[in-house]
Amino acid sequence: MSNLHCLASLALLALTASTASFAQTAGPWNGKQCAVVLTYDDALAVDLNHVVPALDSLKLRGTFYLIGSSPVVAARLPEWRRAALRGHELGNHALMHPCDGSLPGRNFVTPDNDLSKYTISRAVNEVRATNTLLTAIDGKTARTFAYPCGDRQIGGVYFYEQLKNDFVGARGVTAGLQPLAQVDLANINSYMINGQSGDYLINLVKQAQRSRTLLVFLFHGVGGGHGLNVELAAHRQLLRYLQAHEQDIWVAPMVEVAEKMKASKEGSGGSK
Rank of each mutant, 00 (worst) to 15 (best):
L10E: 09
L10K: 14
A11H: 02
L12Y: 07
L13H: 03
L13W: 08
L13I: 07
A14W: 08
A14R: 13
L15C: 10
T16I: 13
T16A: 15
A17Y: 09
S18L: 13
S18D: 06
S18I: 05
A20Q: 13
A20V: 06
A20R: 15
S21F: 11
A23L: 15
T25M: 12
G27F: 07
N30R: 14
N30V: 03
G31A: 01
G31Y: 10
K32P: 04
Q33A: 14
C34W: 02
V37G: 03
T39E: 00
A43P: 01
L44M: 07
L44Y: 01
A45H: 00
A45D: 03
D47Y: 00
D47H: 10
L48F: 04
N49R: 10
N49S: 12
H50G: 03
H50L: 11
V52T: 02
V52C: 04
V52A: 03
P53F: 05
P53T: 03
P53Y: 04
A54I: 02
L55I: 04
L55E: 04
D56M: 02
S57N: 11
K59D: 15
L60Q: 12
R61L: 09
R61Q: 15
R61G: 09
G62L: 01
G62Q: 11
T63E: 05
F64D: 13
F64S: 11
Y65R: 05
Y65C: 09
L66H: 12
I67M: 13
I67C: 13
I67A: 10
I67P: 12
G68Y: 08
S69E: 15
S70Y: 04
P71F: 06
V72E: 14
V72Q: 14
V72G: 05
V73G: 00
P78V: 04
